[in-house]
Design a protein around this nucleic acid. Sequence first.
DNA 1: AGTGGTACTCGGTGATACGGAGTACTGAGA
DNA 2: TCTCAGTACTCCGTATCACCGAGTACCACT
Lengths: 108, 108
Amino acid sequence: MDDLTEMLKGTLEGCVLEIIGREETYGYVITRQLNELGFADVIEGTVYTILLRLERNGLVQVTKRPSGMGPPRKFYSLNDAGRAELGKFWAKWEYLSSRIDKLKEGGR
Amino acid sequence: MDDLTEMLKGTLEGCVLEIIGREETYGYVITRQLNELGFADVIEGTVYTILLRLERNGLVQVTKRPSGMGPPRKFYSLNDAGRAELGKFWAKWEYLSSRIDKLKEGGR
DNA sequence: AGTGGTACTCGGTGATACGGAGTACTGAGA
DNA sequence: TCTCAGTACTCCGTATCACCGAGTACCACT
């Protein structure tokens, strides 16, 4: 698939929120999950910048735990603000994708 | 609706391509059409930057015609490269939106 | 003469995904 | 023992994009 980076802007962060919302997890695993989900070219550096942003914006709770298999991990989970943001993200996505699909089907 | 600008990145240009692909048209009208299609906050300046980019990238053919109702209009139509780009855009959109919808439905 | 609608250009801003280099810890194989 | 691969995170810089504001210009109507 062609380069998706521009199209991912604004949506990738929402995807990360969704993944975190399911269960407490950490950056390395999130990257792997995104890759498996079809976001094949998303790289670790990108995910970590998103995670730092989420933390800075107060949308997640962070817990550092030793790993046993490498350096310690930073586990992320959503707080109330994060869940609210996730809801807003899906509302925006639904709105946008419905308009674009309508345009695609010939709506004018 | 909340601010969609980040989510529009990468998709708005494709929407403009789609509109141009239907019939030769110009910036002012494209803006109005986008607004009616639900992209309510898209402003003229944004559309014009996209049109200049399309022109610079050689995806459109441009014809200037006097207006009778204001300054002359720059009419845009797709050339072969533009049609190819439009096809790629829809392929990317379908790919991306299917992945995200799957994620939304609980896929993992 | 002035106002409002039409129509385009240009320079700058902020947000985002990406890329690369660097750090650091663990365990397995040469 | 030494190296290498895998795990895990940070930081700094880049490119691209949508947006915004100011400016220019043309026309019609009052």
